[in-house]
């Protein structure tokens, strides 16, 4: 299930707000806030607008983290643009106004860094591994990655053109399996929908997607997933109109609380 407010932070938020001494009218005591202690720009004095371009898989986690940062800094407004990483990279190189870019893979981040648009070197802030998603009750009797070589089963994997498909090819190659999919989905969401509707026996998606789908699907981990660990890099951008807020958001994502939120959403902390 989806994970929302972090109770520990809510308490911290109360303390922070108290410290601010009623400088703002929007001091809703129930709202949570970030771990200001770990942030170099914390303390509720950020203002203006922060624009974050982030991979679609980060939608829930980043929205929550953004709410916290905004609650902590009442003068700050955060706008998110969640979409496929390649679309985002294209938009950034075409001059879209963004302060932060969080990509779902290194390749699309490279598009941005090659254009010289990164203000600081990108850092990997989280990882995602593949997981097998099956409908509740696992009607197809899927046990592991080897079932993807079974032509009798109805199977979905992502198209090789999109990141989850590239990762799938990697794990199949590593496992020596010739996959027999019935459909090459355009993105993870489409693959998951087909699992949720019970129209496929299994789909190869990311662990975070299984987590996000809640009770609609069941996840099966498999060891070969380690061969295609997907790293999520993040960086602030040269065109940033609000570098302080950008840095604060980066810091929040990399803080213990940010990492906990990502873990709860099915991601895992970087191994290095």
């Amino acid at each position: 299930m989806r994970l929302r407010a972090l109770p520990v932070l809510a308490v911290a938020g109360l303390l922070t707000l108290t410290a601010c001494g009623g400088s703002s009218s929007s001091s809703d005591a129930a709202s949570s806030t970030s771990a200001a202690a770990s942030s170099s720009a914390g303390g509720g004095d950020l203002t203006g607008t922060l624009t974050v371009f982030a991979a679609a898989s980060l939608t829930d986690v980043f929205t929550d983290l953004g709410d916290q940062l905004m609650a902590d800094n009442p003068e700050l407004t955060i706008t998110f643009n969640f979409a496929g990483s390649s679309a985002l990279a294209t938009q950034i190189t075409q001059g879209a106004p963004a302060d932060v870019f969080a990509s779902a893979n290194q390749k699309q981040m490279t598009v941005v860094t090659d254009a010289g648009l990164d203000a600081d070197d990108p850092t990997v802030f989280t990882e995602n591994v593949l997981e097998i998603a099956v409908p509740p009750g696992n009607p197809g009797g899927i046990t592991g990655l080897a079932d993807f070589g079974d032509a009798d089963k109805t199977l979905a994997i992502c198209a090789p053109d999109v990141p989850c498909g590239a990762a799938a090819e990697t794990v199949f190659a590593a496992a020596g399996i010739t996959a027999q999919p019935d459909t090459l989905e355009e993105d993870v969401r489409a693959a998951l929908t087909k699992v949720e509707l019970g129209e496929v026996d299994a789909a190869l998606v990311y662990a975070s997607d299984v987590q996000a789908a809640g009770d609609g699907v069941e996840g099966i981990e498999f060891p070969e997933a380690e061969d295609a660990v997907n790293e999520y890099p993040i960086c602030t951008l040269t065109g940033a109109s609000n570098p302080e807020a950008a840095q604060a958001f980066l810091d929040l994502v990399e803080s213990d609380e940010g990492q906990q939120a990502l873990t709860d959403a099915g991601f895992r902390s970087p191994s290095n």
């Binding site: 496929g84 979905a156 053109d161 090459l184 355009e186």
Partner: peptide, 27 residues
């Protein structure tokens, strides 16, 4: 089409699907 028929070359991948996927890797 991509929702109901999925996307597989030769059986269900029509041109618009091919175009969309190509856009991801090879604009």
């Amino acid at each position: 089409t991509i929702t109901f028929a999925g996307n597989f070359p030769g059986t269900t991948q029509t041109m618009p699907l091919a175009v969309y996927l190509a856009l991801q890797s090879n604009p």
